[in-house]
Write a protein that binds this DNA or RNA. Structure first.
Lengths: 126, 126, 126, 126
DNA sequence: GTGGTCTAGACCACT
DNA sequence: GTGGTCTAGACCACT
């Protein structure tokens, strides 16, 4: 199975799930229209509380990545916007990794990088 | 005064203080050997509990940025290693800001960036 | 239960906890992967404020002895480096006790021993 | 001058003074009967509050190393017991330094050594 | 329930 | 006055 979460990571489990499903979708492993596993099924597979899976699905629905049909299940939308941006996402992700590497070499702590992302995000927002 | 914290930010107050003092030090506004305001003084200036300032000072001491003299106060060390890396720090910070901007344009959420920094950090560590 | 602290000792409570958990781990009484009691539980067992236990846990995490899973609890890492050094630690501890005994016989105060350890540590560091 | 104190050391200034005067006495640099500098004089030389010097002198007097004559000054006693134990003191000090070195090599923190000295002292006392 | 952060306030040793 | 430790208790996100 390709769903996997790391309970030791500082990233909340439900966010890990969100990122993973998005990633699988962008990489074409999951396709538009495809049915996702039910909350109970997925929670038993990845050994996580059903509430955690539910929270992830709700957020994905809010982002327009999935939709639910009462009684039938949860399905991936045909989100072309997201798919089109896949290459740029990849690039940003790689450049971020590059920066993390350089940071390590000059002794910048992870907490500092995270804080810089926070502050830059706030500036951009306003 | 140049110390300021933002109670609305998701970054913990004590971390904001750590980052700020480091930044002031790197920019040369605070100089090696200089005495920092006492815990009580600073806490009354920035309207924060003394324990919060204390936590920040203790972490800075752990990082070798400051040292304390019992009954006398807290002073900045002569941390040449940190000062020498100032330009590269600046550059990394700027490139990070650039990435945040680009991310915004293609709809990547802040939480996603934070998670990528987390995962990249873990990979680098091992 | 094996957790116990001495409020009359000059060693801070949180340090006593750190030393004790490390000791239990090294002696194999606590094992890698094992879950430590929750902060609230332990604090109620040893009659200490939760913040004090928290401080000890955070320092142990900094030392790589334990890790925390958000919302789940605190667990012992598989710190082989520490376990391998157990015999030498034991030996050093014993020889230290021997020196303390001899010191007592020729009227050397505890404070003097502590100071010698301090100064020797500083010399070694540089 | 041979009196020197280190304000950055975690050892209290008045204890540093005590240790230093004792050391100078044991090494024969200060001799029995010799007059020590007055509190005001010494405090101005080593740039320390007079109260700190006073506290050191009081403790040395309590230990029978010095005595004061009202209006004349402070003098070193003829403490043969202390002088006779000088070689063993030296040896213990050296062995302690050796242990500190070994500790460093197997990652034992200074705080741990200090704690072991504390606990061993308590055991011996009882 | 779990740990993380923060406040208010006390007490202590050292200067 | 200075930092260090500790308590009591609140609030938060995550599970």
């Amino acid at each position: 199975m390709f769903y996997r979460i790391d309970t030791k990571s500082p990233t909340p489990l439900y966010e890990q799930l969100i990122f993973q499903i998005k990633e699988l979708y962008i990489q074409g492993i999951l396709e538009p229209g495809e049915k996702l596993p039910s909350i109970r099924e997925l929670s038993s597979v990845i050994l996580v509380n059903p509430n955690t899976v539910s929270k992830a699905y709700q957020e994905l629905e809010r982002q327009g990545i999935i939709y639910t049909e009462r009684g039938r299940g949860t399905f991936l939308t045909d989100n072309t916007a997201l798919l089109e941006k896949a290459p740029e996402r990849m690039e940003i992700k790689n450049q971020l990794r590059e920066l993390v590497l350089r940071s390590r070499r000059c002794g910048i702590a992870k907490s500092e990088l995270l804080h810089w992302v926070e502050t830059a995000s706030e500036e951009v927002q306003s």
